[in-house]
Write a protein that binds this DNA or RNA. Structure first.
Lengths: 157, 157
DNA sequence: ATTTATGCAAATCGTTTGCAAACCT
DNA sequence: AGGTTTGCAAACGATTTGCATAAAT
């Protein structure tokens, strides 16, 4: 259990931070207050958040925008966060799947831009696996995939 | 055959331009030289191109960058082009599916950023249709979907 | 002649970066 | 102390926009 990437699924939020701390330390970085706050926010969101949403939630803490950007980039680098990009100009961030234990996709509202998580059945992922093979035969090595459904969320009618 | 959106599949490039001209006219716009050139370029590419790639191909014509951006935006509006966004900062553009007659997805190289078209079997799309239903049950109206496989293209090893 | 499209340069806007001060260990 | 992180402001880079000129009908 000294290794990471797999020992988180059974744990609660505490374990999350332990794991995050470990991943940062392995990369020679500290688990600073700001980083902790950022992780706390994206972990509690349940959907990808934009930078401003993250700052808003974290309002009291008064984290500088540039620091938030930097923290997020670092967290992405060490595999704690993931950058999600919907069709608009700003990036959104979510907790990395290795920390949530759930592979998922997204529903993107073209009207308000909101992005919701969407879980798909294994059957679907099996098909994807088959397509990964096809791509490989064509010389393309697939490392990840992304499936989004775009439209109108319930709030936007 | 007076209507559009369906009368193109059997046609060649000439028909393409006829259809594009019609769609623009319906929107009260002219099929100018620049617009024609842009359509010609994205139609001949076979994969989504960035603005600079489009300008490069069209080098001789010396089309202003801002005009190209404007043309592309207009073409997207009238349903002639589609904006594709890979993970990086710049947008790519491709001919709208209603003009190619082929629904497809993309292979995105994380290394060079190149985006290739990728056709998936009907079976896959059937699964997607099922997921669209699921989303609908949840109050989300799906208008489109996007499926990308990310990794390394043949050239980048 | 009238309307629409283009080019150029300036303006936007999200995101990144340089650097000195603040923090940790 | 020695190295890392933060905040602030300036820098960036893709995309957009204002406006006077050119093109099309």
């Amino acid at each position: 259990m000294a290794d990471d990437h797999l020992d988180v699924h059974e744990g609660a939020i505490d374990d999350l931070h332990v794991t995050v701390g470990r991943r940062l330390r392995v990369a020679g970085m500290r688990y600073s207050r700001s980083r902790y706050a950022v992780v706390e926010v994206i972990a509690g969101a349940g959907r990808p958040l934009t930078l401003s949403e993250i700052l808003a939630v974290d309002a009291g803490r008064r984290l500088a925008q540039s620091s938030a950007y930097r923290n997020l980039a670092e967290l992405v680098d060490v595999g704690v966060a993931r950058r999600v990009d919907a069709g608009d100009d700003r990036s959104r961030f979510e907790l990395h799947e290795s920390l949530t234990g759930h592979h998922h996709h997204h529903l993107v509202c073209d009207s308000c831009g909101r992005v919701e998580d969407f879980h798909v059945p294994d059957e679907f992922e099996k098909q994807v696996a088959a397509l990964v093979e096809v791509a490989a035969d064509g010389g393309f090595r697939v490392d990840a995939h992304r499936f989004d459904m775009l439209g109108r969320c319930a709030e936007c009618r």
